[in-house]
Amino acid sequence: MKTNEVPQQNAKAFMGHSKLLYAQDQTGRYVGAPSSGWEAEEIVLDQAIGEYVQLAADAWRRAKAGAASTLEYHMYRERMDVVLLAQSTGFPKWRVRRHLKSGVFQKLPLRHRQRYAEALGKTPEQLERLPEQP
C-alpha cells in the first residue's frame, strides 16, 4: 500500500480520531500513515455492534414480557455474552444461564447481584431496571 492509497473515509466510529497504518511513500520507504477510516473496517465494525444491539433488543422484549431477567438485557447492552459474563464474574456458565431466567435474578442474594453489577459497571439497582427503549 502506498501512502496515497491509505483510505480516508472519515469513519463515524473514530469520532474524528485517526488510526495509524504503515504504507510506502513515493520513494518506496515505509512511513506511519494515519487513516481516518476504511469502508471494509466500517462494515465489519457496524456488523459486530449491530449484532449486540439486536441481541439486547430481543432480550429487552423478553424481559418486558417477563420471559427473561433484566440481567440478560444488560449483559448484551454491555457487549458481553454468557461466556464473557461468566469469566468476568467467576460464576460458572450454567449458573449465569440460570440467573438469566425470569425471576431468578431478582431473588439472588445481594452479594451475587453485586458481582454482576461490578462486572457490568452498574449498581445492583440499575441491573433490575429496564430503560424505556432497548
Binding site: E41, I43, V44, L45, A48
Partner: peptide
Amino acid sequence: LGHIVRMQEE
C-alpha cells in the same frame, strides 16, 4: 467473515 476482517484490520 466479518470477525476475520476485524481481527485482520481493525
